[in-house]
Design a binder for these strands. Structure first.
Lengths: 197, 197
DNA sequence: TTGCTTGTTGTACGATCGTATAATAAGCTG
DNA sequence: CAGCTTATTATACGATCGTACAACAAGCAA
């Protein structure tokens, strides 16, 4: 047992805990509060570790964005996988998952808006955003194709659904008094029904 | 003619120029770059003026948000006013204006995302957001009512359109390569047609 | 003109920012 | 055990942050 707080960890494990601390700080204090010191305090380590493991706070924030994007994709894919074989049910499961935990979460929204703000000023964050959203669209296009939508119409439909879900998710998180998860899902399902004809 | 840069202005005019400078800085550098010094430099005045006219940088940012919200509402209302008397045309004009200048603007998006980020951490900004969006919904509900939509269905339809337009507008500004104004408008119009039945 | 109000500037203060760096401690190899 | 690598801490440095404050200047009243 060491007398100080010095505990050595695997680099990957330490990077992971720093990423989780960054997400927590972003959720609690927004982008303005995500300083190296605040993140290090949240993770229970010294500020120098951020430089040591990530080279700078910018790379840490980008890594946090990438990981949260992965988690969102994984949650959506899991929802589809658990929805059985009916194409329509799989599509609806994908959409409905956006309004449930862990995606429809105020902390996740805080992280997301922080990154939207960074997309403007930082090219590497913008590239991450484009990659993430292309992935969502691809997943949606596959689900729409399984529902029988013509290939020529898939791209536009995927964009429409992504936009609708994003907007509903945003309002659901920003103003829970205006919109709840049940109604968001009902709205999305009705619009998608119209889209599939 | 004074030998220094000292020029006296009406308080309202000076406040206005500080608000415009804040919007410019937010658009160029994002929320992280909107410091008192950067704003004062943009406005061509001394940093002390921010404290003198607004009491602090927080109030200046809130005032900027409120004013931009007013401008967006005014642009939308003007689009409706110029659309003639057909209810359907008026509704579509309202929606289409969201994808045109001055609303579909990268600078405006930067300002908006900056405020979304602030909604999480600051209660007074959240209240401003709720007020703004309630106003948009009310305007949409009136337009939907003129199109013959039953009163019971108007609220949900207004939420759906607001969400769809927000999501399309966001993607249009963040990733112009993926989506242009013409396609955003086409997507929105098709969805609204389905909504009106 | 003189005096008063107030918009404006310039600067200074303490706090916090990101990052660099030297010292230290843990774990591995020999 | 000795020696090496490196994860970690603690601290320091310069820059920038928001705000306070005293001095100054412009316009108006008398």
């Amino acid at each position: 047992m060491s007398k100080s707080g010095f505990t050595r960890a695997e680099p990957d494990a330490r990077r992971q805990s720093l990423i989780e601390a960054t997400a927590s700080v972003l959720a609690r204090d927004g982008a303005g509060g995500a300083s190296v010191r605040a993140i290090a305090l949240e993770a229970g380590v010294s500020p120098g570790l951020v430089t040591h493991h990530f080279g700078g706070v910018d790379a840490l924030i980008a890594a946090t964005y990438a990981q949260i994007g992965e988690q969102v994709s994984a949650a959506l894919d899991a929802a589809v996988a658990g929805a059985g074989n009916d194409p329509r049910a799989r599509l609806m499961a994908y959409v409905a998952a956006s309004f449930l935990s862990p995606i429809a979460d105020r902390a996740l929204l805080a992280t997301w808006t922080a990154f939207w703000g960074l997309v403007i000023a930082r090219v590497e964050i913008a590239a991450l955003h484009d990659t993430q959203y292309a992935r969502y669209r691809d997943a949606l296009e596959a689900l729409l194709g399984a529902c029988g939508l013509a290939p020529a119409a898939r791209r536009r439909a995927a964009i429409a659904i992504t936009a609708l879900v994003d907007g509903l998710w945003l309002e659901l998180c920003l103003s829970p008094a205006v919109l709840d998860a049940t109604e968001a899902r009902a709205i999305a399902e009705a619009q998608i029904e119209a889209l599939l004809g």
